[in-house]
């Protein structure tokens, strides 16, 4: 399978605070890669580096064969990287429809005329069609998370980054999210999914990467990674008595 994304020895952080240390991994086209790791290990920072909100101080990020390390955030969105945020960040002064339309127009480079049916189609796919005229600030948490995904899809991404979209949801809602991600995978999207819900990682991902201290600790089959001794020690804080 071809790689769509490669992180090569990436260092980065915020100002003088270095979070990512020599982070290297690859993502295969069409797969769902789960990312786990303790709080503060650099998962969201990895996303920020990937979408261009922070610039790595060392290393390279290769997307579809192109070095995008110095490419601006908005250009990366246009190249096909869509992202959701851990804490939903809807444009609260705009309606649900406008939130998705802005992504279609700017991320996917469509005209408003062409973007309208596309936005409506995405709203149907994500279950927000009936709420399209509601101000985004008035949505429930689940709907805000749906909107995050809808907005990311509006950019017409090839690589979709999901940051804890199941966090804070009840079991039934988590099930809905898993189904939605399965539909997206079936539609051909490549997905990197940061999540703390172990069950989600086991059910919905093809591979899992465990991060620790800003670097890749282990990457492989979901069950193999989640049950490995090193991951349980670092991530779950369980030490072997032997």
């Amino acid at each position: 399978m071809d790689n769509i994304l490669t992180f090569k020895n990436v260092d980065g952080g915020y100002g003088r605070v270095k979070i990512l240390h020599d982070l290297s991994f690859e993502v295969r086209k069409g797969e769902v890669l789960g990312v786990v790791g303790p709080n503060g290990c650099g998962k969201t920072t990895m996303f920020n580096a990937l979408i261009g909100l922070i610039t790595p101080t060392a290393g390279e990020i290769i997307f579809k064969g192109k070095n995008i390390t110095k490419v601006s955030a908005n250009d990366r969105a246009r190249m096909g990287i869509g992202r959701t945020y851990q804490v939903p960040r809807p444009f609260e002064g705009m309606t649900v429809f406008e939130n998705v339309l802005v992504a279609c127009c700017h991320g996917a480079g469509m005209t408003e005329h062409a973007g309208r049916p596309k936005a409506l189609e995405i709203l149907k796919l994500t279950g927000l069609y009936e709420k399209r005229e509601i101000m985004a600030g008035e949505l429930t948490l689940l709907d805000r998370k749906r909107l995050e995904i809808a907005r990311a899809l509006g950019t017409n991404p090839e690589l979709l980054l999901l940051d804890e979209v199941a966090a804070g949801l009840v079991e039934a809602e988590v099930g809905e999210v898993i189904d939605m991600v399965a539909d997206l995978k079936a539609a051909g999207y490549t997905i990197i999914w940061i999540e703390h819900v172990i069950d989600v990682m086991l059910k919905a991902t093809d591979r899992v990467m465990c991060m620790s201290d800003g670097t890749d600790l282990l990457i492989g089959e979901p069950r193999e990674v989640m049950e490995s001794k090193i991951v349980t020690e670092v991530y779950l804080g369980v030490e072997d008595d032997e």
Binding site: V102, G109, T155
Partner: peptide, 13 residues
């Protein structure tokens, strides 16, 4: 106006 970083990450220049 609502969120510059989020806007940037969906392609707004």
């Amino acid at each position: 106006r609502d969120d510059a970083d989020a806007a940037s990450s969906i392609g707004v220049n």
